Simulated assay, not measured.
Amino acid sequence: MSVSDMKQPETISTWYIDPDAEDAMADGHAPIWRHLIGLVPEPDLSRQAVLDFGCNQGGFLRHLHALRPFRKALGVDIARQSIDKANALKGNLPVQYQTDTKLAGWHAEFDIAFSHEVIYLIEDIEAHAADMLRVLKPGGVYYAVTGCHTDNPLWPAWRKLVAERTNTVVQDRSVTDYARVFAGAGFAVSARKLAFDGFIPYQPGGWTPDYATALDYYSQTKIVFRLIKA
């Protein structure tokens, strides 16, 4: 059975097989999160409800609230220990966390939603698109970010690394595949390159074979979808 034929479980213990990698992942994503927040044209979230799909340990919502405080937020993730850590770290933030990624019981609740490097792991992407459309208010926006797609020249090697290092199941989709699925669900679809303009740390033994490739990945390969519910 190939990796893409395997089924993603409803919940997992941790994303990474090595649990210490969870903290390292959050630290590595922090500059990308801040850059993404800077790209979002919605400046005032003070009266808005926010959804973070695939929230892991809650780091993105903590960054978002620090930069653009929101009224309330929900973070969902299939990793049970990640949700436990997110709850332990949230302090007094107006955030709720759960492992129910099907978002049962939520309807037209959120003004804005985010996912970062999550959609490539979702087996039933059509159901995910329908769920996200359902939980957003009319005019709500979903920002889905991924560099894990078949248009990425690193993808053949990366899909093996994801399978080896994590407790997840990868899916093979192109940028166009995602656009078609979200458009078919009823979203108005647009996208841009992340075009991260910050400094990229040199990390030998990371996900890219050389440093030049890492620089190209964050500036050219990583895509931000902007999906609007009519």
Rank of each mutant, 00 (worst) to 15 (best):
N167T: 14
V118R: 02
G105I: 07
L103D: 11
Q8W: 00
R34K: 14
I228L: 02
D197S: 10
W158N: 12
S46W: 02
G139H: 00
R173H: 14
Y211D: 10
P9F: 03
S219A: 11
N167W: 10
R62I: 07
L51I: 11
T176K: 11
L103V: 13
I122M: 05
S4C: 07
A130C: 10
K229Q: 02
E10Y: 03
D44I: 03
P153E: 09
T99F: 05
Q81F: 02
H63G: 04
M1L: 12
Q220R: 08
M25R: 03
L227Y: 00
L74G: 08
D210T: 02
G58A: 08
A49M: 07
E126N: 14
Q81C: 06
Y178P: 14
T99C: 15
F70L: 03
L74A: 10
I12H: 00
P31A: 07
A66M: 08
Q57D: 12
V3M: 11
Y202N: 14
A129Y: 07
P43F: 05
I83W: 06
Q220I: 00
T14L: 03
Q8C: 08
L154G: 15
Q96S: 14
I125M: 10
V3F: 09
Q96M: 09
T221G: 02
S13F: 02
F110E: 11
P204S: 03
D177N: 12
A144T: 06
T221E: 04
T146R: 03
